[in-house]
């Protein structure tokens, strides 16, 4: 029992967000199906059931356009914070430390500790991959979900075009369409604004107890200090 409680406490952040994600996804499916069916009924077409909607391109593109932008946000944040800094932000390294840093600073290669991951000191390809694994995985998920958005988006857009007695577009034509770029950029702009806000507001504002914030008494100029 205490082991289970320990597991829940040790993983409460990940578990909370995973559960909240599933609830939000279910809510999106319910609301999305209602909206989709409202449009069908307005055209005197037959409404669809829950599972038909969940497996539709209409639901797929709505999910994927948000996923790709979230993974792009984290990929950019992970990658760009290697090279760019924000003086005073707990999200940034101190000015002067830009770059990939030495093996000594990174506990890599011969500077790896006894409890370091094995690939931190493996050398060669394994160490190269491991030292970029977070960005590689986030970037790969971004590319795949953006690709999925384009495929599902083309199908959903064509379904609407056929409903409006218009010829469907090829995938290539869809990639240059206003629908694809409107869906893409409306998500990107909000994610980029959120990063900029976090980087700058965390210089001057505090959230007591949060590792995303500096301690409340830290100077505004202190950089890379987490609470």
């Amino acid at each position: 029992m205490s082991n289970r409680r320990g597991f829940l406490r040790d993983n409460s952040l990940g578990l909370f967000f995973l559960a909240a994600f599933l609830l939000a996804l279910a809510g999106q499916a319910l609301a999305g199906r209602t909206e989709y069916n409202n449009q069908l009924e307005a055209e005197q077409l037959e409404p669809v059931g829950f599972w038909t909607y969940v497996s539709s391109s209409d639901f797929g593109v709505d999910v994927m356009e948000n996923w790709q932008s979230e993974y792009l946000q984290f990929f950019l944040y992970i990658f760009l914070t290697v090279w760019l800094v924000q003086r005073g932000s707990p999200e940034s390294k101190s000015p002067g430390r830009e770059g990939r840093e030495s093996d000594e600073e990174q506990y890599a290669g011969e500077h790896a500790a006894a409890d370091s991951p094995r690939w931190a000191s493996a050398g060669g390809t394994r160490q190269w991959v491991f030292s970029r694994s977070l960005g590689l995985v986030m970037g790969t998920i971004f590319v795949l979900s953006w690709l999925a958005q384009s495929l599902a988006g083309a199908a959903a857009h064509n379904e609407r075009r056929l409903q409006q007695l218009q010829a469907p577009l090829s995938w290539g034509q869809y990639l240059t369409s206003a629908d694809f770029w409107s869906r893409t950029l409306q998500n990107w702009q909000s994610e980029l604004l959120a990063i900029a806000s976090m980087a700058v507001l965390s210089v001057y504002l505090r959230q007591r107890g949060s590792p995303e914030s500096k301690p409340i008494g830290s100077a505004h100029a202190s950089t890379g200090v987490e609470g």
């Binding site: 077409l45 037959e46 391109s57 959903a156 379904e159 409903q163």
Partner: peptide, 23 residues
């Protein structure tokens, strides 16, 4: 024949039709 979701366009030699999927 183009099918996307529950909508379709069928181009015949002499006519073009649009169709929708029902139960």
């Amino acid at each position: 024949v183009d099918v996307h979701g529950r909508q379709a366009r069928v181009r015949l030699a002499g006519d073009t039709l649009f169709l929708a999927g029902f139960d």
